[in-house]
Design a protein around this nucleic acid. Structure first.
Lengths: 123, 123
DNA sequence: ACTACTGTATTAAGTACCTAATACAATAAT
DNA sequence: ATTATTGTATTAGGTACTTAATACAGTAGT
């Protein structure tokens, strides 16, 4: 998975989201050690301060913890990760349905559009 | 429909999106006249310059046109509006599916989650 | 003719974000 | 012991966004 950053939103916010994704999807497994702030920053072509800011936020949420000199680790609380994953998924669905509704689509139309596009992706 | 603005993204970008929604959903019908820049800005609690910036962008896309002194109007090109609506819908679905996939969900799971939440919304 | 309203442009100031360049204390590795 | 690496903190500078305060030209309504 690569770092996908856009100019139209604060970088630190995008980093938070993508780090969450990596934790919730298991890319960074529970208890595993993350690359150092400096390495992560270089990976993402971002200033270490900006990466640090994102990491600090995930630490507030309990998804990460740091040992001052040995590095930073993913929580071993699998239940927290599961809850976070479900929360994020729920938010994604809610926002998606709301936007489609704002665009003027009915629920039936939304389902059929999703089905169509998903079939394209599969074939 | 009210103006929903968040601090975590540029306001002008959010205005562009919400104006697009109003045009594509028919809230602002084809050929209709929009409130003045100043009025729209006041509605949204935003500086007229910021609203102007968003409107200028929609003008570039052909969704709006302005008569220098009589006001600003929605295009009468219904086909353009339809295409824009479909483009936006397609983008929404693509982004949504991508994020759910990044979170670690399979297509079947996504469909079932959507169905569950949609049923909640209906009942 | 006059008034009010239209879109548009300009300038200045404040704020948030991002980067760069350091620095420091703690500890793992040697 | 020494060295390298860790997270963390600080300072300064640049950029983009937003607001505020104007100003101007064109035109519809009176």
């Amino acid at each position: 998975m690569t770092w996908d950053l856009t100019a139209d939103r604060p970088i630190y916010a995008q980093l938070i989201e993508q780090l969450e994704l990596r934790i919730c999807s298991g890319t960074y497994p529970p208890g595993s050690r993350l690359p150092s702030v400096r390495d992560l920053a270089q990976e993402a072509s971002v200033n270490p301060n900006t990466m640090q800011r994102a990491l600090a936020r995930l630490e507030e949420d309990g998804l990460l913890y740091s040992h001052r000199t040995s590095g930073r680790f993913v929580t071993e609380d699998a239940e927290l990760i599961r809850k976070t994953k479900n929360k994020l998924a729920h938010e994604q669905v809610q926002e998606f349905l709301q936007r489609m509704k704002d665009l003027g689509f009915e629920y039936n139309e939304i389902l059929s559009i999703i089905t169509d596009i998903a079939e394209e992706l599969i074939k």
